[in-house]
Simulated assay, not measured.
Amino acid sequence: MPSRYYPIILENGSEGFHATFPDFPGLTAFGDTKAAVTANAEAGLALHIAGMIEDGDDIPEPSDLDQVPTDPEVVEAGRLLVRGELPGRAVRVNVTFDEALLAAIDAEAKRRDTSRAGFLAAAARREIAQQTGTR
Rank of each mutant, 00 (worst) to 15 (best):
D32K: 13
P22R: 12
A50E: 10
L81Q: 09
S3D: 09
T96S: 14
A41W: 04
A19T: 02
I53A: 07
E61P: 00
I105K: 14
K110L: 10
E127L: 15
E85A: 13
S14R: 15
V75C: 02
A46G: 14
F24Q: 06
A35G: 14
D71F: 05
D32E: 15
F17C: 06
G118H: 11
L27Q: 08
Q131V: 06
A123Q: 11
Y6C: 05
L27N: 07
V95L: 15
I59L: 07
A121K: 11
A107P: 00
A104C: 04
R79E: 02
H48I: 00
A90I: 04
E54L: 07
A36L: 00
L10N: 06
Q67G: 00
M52Y: 03
R112N: 13
E76D: 05
R125E: 10
A129I: 03
L10V: 05
G84L: 00
G51H: 03
A46M: 11
I49R: 00
R79I: 00
I49K: 00
G84M: 00
D55I: 00
V95E: 09
D71E: 12
A36D: 06
A90D: 05
N12Y: 14
P60L: 11
D113V: 12
T114D: 05
S14C: 06
N40A: 08
A41R: 03
R92V: 06
A41L: 07
A121R: 15
G13S: 13
L47K: 05
G88I: 13
R89K: 10
R4G: 12
T132Y: 06
R79H: 05
R92S: 13
E76I: 12
F21S: 01
E108T: 11
D57Y: 03
K110V: 06
A41H: 02
E61A: 15
E108G: 01
D55H: 13
A129S: 14
H48K: 10
D64R: 02
D113P: 02
L80K: 04
D32R: 11
V75Y: 02
L102H: 07
Q131T: 08
V93Y: 07
R92G: 07
A19V: 04
V75R: 06
G78Y: 03
P69T: 02
F30Q: 13
R112I: 08
S63K: 09
G78M: 04
V37F: 04
E73K: 14
S115H: 09
A129W: 03
A43R: 11
E15W: 11
R125H: 11
V37I: 03
E73L: 15
R116D: 06
P69W: 04
T134H: 12
A104E: 15
G31D: 03
V75M: 06
K34Y: 00
T28F: 10
P22K: 14
S14G: 13
Y5C: 06
R116S: 05
A129K: 04
P87E: 12
Q67A: 15
G133L: 10
A121Q: 09
E15N: 14
L45R: 10
S115V: 07
A122H: 06
I128S: 05
T134K: 04
S14D: 13
A77F: 05
E85I: 07
E108V: 01
D57M: 10
A29D: 08
D98K: 12
A46W: 03
Y6N: 08
N40K: 03
V74Q: 12
G13D: 12
A100I: 14
V93K: 10
E54Q: 11
A104H: 12
T134M: 04
D23E: 02
F17T: 01
V75A: 09
T28A: 10
